Simulated assay, not measured.
Amino acid sequence: MTTLIAIPARYASTRYPGKPLVTLKGPDGEKTLIRRSWEAAMSVKGADRVVVATDDDRIATHARAFGAEVVMTSSAARNGTERCAEVATLLPGHDLIVNLQGDAPLTPPWFVENLIAGLKADPKAQIATPVLRCSGRALAGLLTDRKAGRVGGTTAVFNAQNHALYFSKEVIPFTATDFPPDAPTPVFHHVGVYAYRPNALDAYTSWNPGPLEELEGLEQLRFLENGWPVLCVQVDSRGREFWELNNPSDVAIIEKMLSHSSHA
């Protein structure tokens, strides 16, 4: 069973134009967001191929310069899943396609490895995505973003079979409890990684975005709105901090976490 990791990257982000080429400082020097995301993908065990999928020549030129394989995709792709569907068509023959978002350079390799294992272990599952139980500190960060009007991380709720009930940019479920920084909470942070079987990508591109996807701006809701279950695979942070680059203010947060991870 072969696995392809695709890293969708577009320059024309509404909230943060040029985001893939933003430079992040770390213990290993300054590297762009897309390079750090590619390096995270390259460290995943069991991946047979890693590609950067973009429609922008600036991103493509930069990615090729640091050694990445690049697949040029259409500018018509509305989100990363549609871009991955195009990659699956251009590079056929893979059993699993992983969508590693280009704005999540802190994604530990075992998140992706567990995701791949979870999908392989459930032959009926067509789509899977990792979820991470928030600590009190992580939950406080999400709530602070929302109070400030910033779009931060996405949260997920799921049933006893680990099938997603909903994903939201609001913090769900609601809790009035204040948790100590290191205490576990009932809130799960959705990690921006997906694994699909090829037929799931074929189906996805045959549907138009639904009202929930358009309201939340979350691509995975298209599967739920069309009755396709999304398997949520719980992952363990192993003490590693996780954050996505959604807003310019996230740069300092991620740089701080990169510095901490060097001492982990």
Results as ranks from 00 to 15, higher is better:
L212S: 14
T2D: 07
I34E: 01
V51L: 02
M42H: 10
A264L: 15
A148M: 05
V187C: 04
G26D: 06
T14W: 10
G149D: 07
V22F: 11
R58G: 05
Q234Y: 12
R10D: 04
V87A: 03
T175Y: 10
P209F: 05
S13Y: 11
L258T: 04
Y166T: 10
S37A: 07
D182F: 10
N159P: 00
G102Q: 09
L139T: 08
Q126M: 13
S237R: 13
G141S: 14
V171C: 09
S13A: 08
W243P: 04
A65N: 13
L143T: 00
V70I: 06
V193I: 13
D103K: 01
R222Q: 10
D95V: 07
G141A: 05
D48V: 00
D250G: 08
L143V: 06
P180N: 06
P27D: 12
T177H: 15
S237M: 01
Q161C: 07
A121T: 15
T2F: 05
G26E: 05
G192T: 04
A41P: 03
Y194V: 04
Y194K: 08
R83T: 09
N159C: 11
W38D: 10
W110S: 09
S237P: 08
A203E: 14
L258K: 07
P123F: 03
V191C: 03
V191I: 09
E113R: 09
L215T: 15
G18Q: 11
T81N: 13
A252K: 05
M72P: 00
R10F: 12
K25P: 14
W243F: 11
L33M: 03
Q234R: 11
V230M: 09
A160D: 15
N162A: 15
P108K: 00
V22A: 13
L224W: 13
V157G: 05
V151Y: 08
P27N: 07
Q101E: 14
L212P: 04
L201Y: 11
N79K: 12
G192L: 15
D95G: 13
G93F: 12
R222L: 14
L143D: 10
V51P: 03
I97R: 12
A65I: 10
